[in-house]
Computed example of a mutant assay.
Amino acid sequence: MPETITLTPAERWRLLLGEAAETGLARLDGEAAAMDRALSWLYGRDGGDPRDTLDRQGGNEPSALSVPDWINDIHTLFPQETIERLERDAIERYGIDEIVTNPEVLARATPNPALLEAVLRTKHLMNPEVLALARALVAQVVKDIMEKLAKQIERSFSGVKHRQRVVPTGAASQFAAGETLRRNLRHFDPASRRLILARPWFHHNTRRRLERWQIILLVDQSGSMVSSVIHSAVTASCLWGLPGVKTHLIAFDTEIVDLTDHADDPVETLMKVQLGGGTHIGKALAYAAEQIEVPTRAIIVLVTDFYEGMAEYQLVTLTAALVAQGTKVLGLAALNDRAEADFDRRLAEKLADAGAHIAAMTPGQLANWLAEKLG
């Protein structure tokens, strides 16, 4: 997970007391302002509760946050113990349970990526009836993402026509009319003014012949990486059917979950992912290394924000060893439709120095990168 947001004492008091203290304390901006907005959205609903140790006072301005927005914001801004407290207060004190307890609300919800992220973050709170509806919502959003990505991956791996090369046999759709005329000009009969086509020619349509490769998607499932988790699951599913490619999908925090058996079903994958917890990237990379069959024909795609919760030595040393044996290591700080990332640049630079490729990509860009390396 990202490093803890550092607040000054004045900012802490300002968050504690609410907007009423705005004039007497520091004005909030950036992440601190976002934290205050999230807290005000929840605790600004009444004048406070004596049982609430924060005893906050909220502002009077209407909030533009929706329930999914709020859930996604608090998972980005606060540590895990605070998230659990906020979610508990939202449900138990304020009855804000549209997402996790109300099947009618969830059934009316418009499927979209933001709602999908909120569902994945709160599915552990859902009863079976709501969970079934949530699964259907996940399936619809995943279907929309897959339809777009599948076309991009197909284009990346389908090969191209080489019009400079022609062969004497081929399908009608590959008929090289211009080249056929040019090569048969010597058979032109001036008397009858007819051109006899002694031999037709066809464009040679080549496809990249993929030898057996392994693509190991190693995905950080900490809460800040939820968008990349979604797109990694969809990407793995699209790669699953490629000829000559063996795809692995592995999720990790401080523990490792091998989801390869479900890699062809992104909905099942996402319903099994448990977001949150710490991060041990080195341990996960060591597990991925154990899955490699032929080092020179393996690619590890490490999707993480590079905030390592354990000693960095193992991660950096193992990365260098993998590169030295001929394995390609691609570290992605983000794998989503925006390719935007907040990550530990210092550690990412260390891995780049060890030989890893470091980037942030959309799934389509990843497909192009993989096709280039496998071609």
Rank of each mutant, 00 (worst) to 15 (best):
E92P: 03
L65Q: 07
H75G: 03
H204C: 15
H162Q: 12
L115R: 00
N127M: 10
N72M: 08
D73M: 09
P190E: 08
L149T: 01
K161Q: 07
A109M: 05
K148D: 08
A150V: 03
F202M: 07
S192I: 09
T101R: 11
P68W: 06
E147R: 04
R186G: 04
S66D: 06
V141D: 09
Q80T: 12
H162A: 11
F157K: 07
W201V: 09
E154R: 07
S66V: 02
F78K: 10
T110M: 01
V142G: 09
P79K: 06
R93C: 07
D89C: 00
S173Q: 08
F175N: 00
I153E: 06
L181Y: 12
I145W: 04
I153K: 09
L86F: 01
I99E: 01
P68C: 07
S156G: 12
G178L: 13
P68N: 09
E129G: 13
D144L: 07
I71F: 04
I74M: 12
N72C: 10
F157H: 10
A109D: 02
L133D: 00
F175R: 01
A198G: 11
H203F: 15
L149P: 01
K151A: 08
H203D: 13
S66E: 04
R194D: 12
K161N: 13
P79E: 12
R93E: 06
A107C: 02
L116S: 02
Q80E: 15
I71R: 00
Q140V: 04
T101S: 15
I96H: 03
M146D: 14
F188E: 10
A171V: 05
I74Y: 11
V138Y: 01
L197C: 09
D89Q: 06
W201P: 00
I74K: 05
H204W: 11
G170C: 05
R88E: 13
A198K: 15
T180W: 14
H204Y: 15
L181W: 12
A136E: 06
